[in-house]
Design a protein around this nucleic acid. Sequence first.
DNA 1: CTGAAAGCGCTTACAG
DNA 2: CTGAAAGCGCTTACAG
Lengths: 339, 339
Amino acid sequence: MSVTMADIAKECGVSMMTVSRVLSGKGSVSAKTRDKVMQVARAHNFAVNSIASSFARRKSNFVGLVAPMDRIVGSDYFSQIWKGVNDALKVTNYDLALFDYHSSEFAGGARVQSLYHSRKVDGILCVTPTAEDAFLDTTHDQRIPLVVLGKPVNNPQICTVNCEDYQGVIDMAEYLYNQGHRRIAFLGGPKDWSLAQLRVDAFKDFCQRRRLRVPKRFIAHSEYTPESSYEAGLRLLEVPHRPTAIIAGNDISALGIIKGAHTLGLRVPEDLSVAGSNDYHYASNTEPPLTAIHQPLRDMAKLGTRTLLDALDRNEPPTGHLAVKTSLSIRQSTGPVPR
Amino acid sequence: MSVTMADIAKECGVSMMTVSRVLSGKGSVSAKTRDKVMQVARAHNFAVNSIASSFARRKSNFVGLVAPMDRIVGSDYFSQIWKGVNDALKVTNYDLALFDYHSSEFAGGARVQSLYHSRKVDGILCVTPTAEDAFLDTTHDQRIPLVVLGKPVNNPQICTVNCEDYQGVIDMAEYLYNQGHRRIAFLGGPKDWSLAQLRVDAFKDFCQRRRLRVPKRFIAHSEYTPESSYEAGLRLLEVPHRPTAIIAGNDISALGIIKGAHTLGLRVPEDLSVAGSNDYHYASNTEPPLTAIHQPLRDMAKLGTRTLLDALDRNEPPTGHLAVKTSLSIRQSTGPVPR
DNA sequence: CTGAAAGCGCTTACAG
DNA sequence: CTGAAAGCGCTTACAG
């Protein structure tokens, strides 16, 4: 029905192999033959049937991106991840297939197996902040080329690419400390979220190093949503000896805290400094503009994707643990400790 | 290397065809044979090689989603589209392949051709608010099953699925009119964006119908970005006889206008009513919460995807023009006209 | 209900 | 530099 290599070959008076070589750029062909084939192929608008090609090569040239789409697709987080993945992919001949991560289906690894074994993606990028490690272990155990983006994983065999989240929290805490703050609180995220936990740990370590005695309630948790962080913010602030600064585990939480502060009649940053941990696009557009740990997520995703592709090229499993540096975006939601 | 149907067949003592029938669920097989095959397949964790299957069936079971990722991936717009597409896809055995729309590559249709002819996606969903119609025409002319989501298209042959954007603007304008507003302005988007233009047209029609004489400068344009809408907002408001209400062509612009109003010392909604046109998630989380036209984008995308899949099932090109109803989300950024 | 044959459109591996 | 053969793992179409 549509034009095939055999058609092109016949019209050029050469074998299919020659056409294949010209079109794939692999193997040598005389300039004259090459030109002829190219010309005829172009005239027919011929494009190699990549399914047939994949079938013959046993390689799909698809990378699978597994993510809990419901939770993250609309987020700036995913946006940056996406762009980074694309940055890496667009200079290759890989395309992207997306797969939704539902914990129920994925937990046992059954779905990822069908992904890899059935859909034959060549490798998998996981952006699953809430994923059970068990899922990742299963995937890894099946010898599926896997890179996990943006979260720490217990199994050291699994290749991960992260931001230096731990150091980012330390840096932000140091900055607030240098602004004179001593009653600093931290609003963490869901406890089953390893990255959220990592940030809490960083804050605790900072307190210990600086010998800050922090009341237990200064280390709070929210669901990283506007509502729950608003509530958590109120709880943190509606007490005597409230904190003078709060670091939130994500930007959304920071905005919730600011809203809570306003409800209580507190000014930000005059009465309370609030910092976020993502530096999303809208962070500079809030009132007041948000101070945040800047995470180069796009770079992270690009690096992670390249790590996966490099491993695929070398035909070995991806390994190692890479991290990209964070920085601080200091804006107007933080300032010196109130006197 | 990995287990194939032939392996399963041999182990079961049946032919490959029987295994194929059991696994695909097509054709009849005795219950006994079926059970045996299922059991052996499960024991080997066997999954049909979908590349081989696609190759034999000449059908990839991939739907291609073409979108200008740089512009929309992080947006709530895309998030909802995505979810709608997924809603429709997850009850099928189609997966999703994503393709970035760059006007340069796509304008001539070359890339989409390679997408369809090379990658062999079975059909294409376009979410390309800024796409030239030429691109869509080319795609359509190549008899590629195509559904365009969220924008009007000139060529009536091309299947589109939209929200009732025109009526939504009319409804919002009517609501403001009923609140006593007579000096209503409209901040549109980029002029090469057909949906943006449609909304402007709706507003103009409303004015005509209601015999509102609107100064030319009351119909303004921005780039739908925070910065440009802030500027545009200032220009609308920094004049004598400023509008008492502004409808923005998207939520971002509405927020920019509110910021501009605050800069000028105007209170929203006491001095100025501002309405958005998307009703994105964060719209209810702004200060003040934003009144907006609610667009059921998720439903739209789901409907569009089903329209495409239905057409693929029937093996005919998708046709027609569907639209889902909008509604008004009235919040605190609008109110009665100031006295 | 079951199977043998042919073929989907390429690429790999070999031969010249 | 070029080509003939075999095969990738399924499904379609036919036969029984």
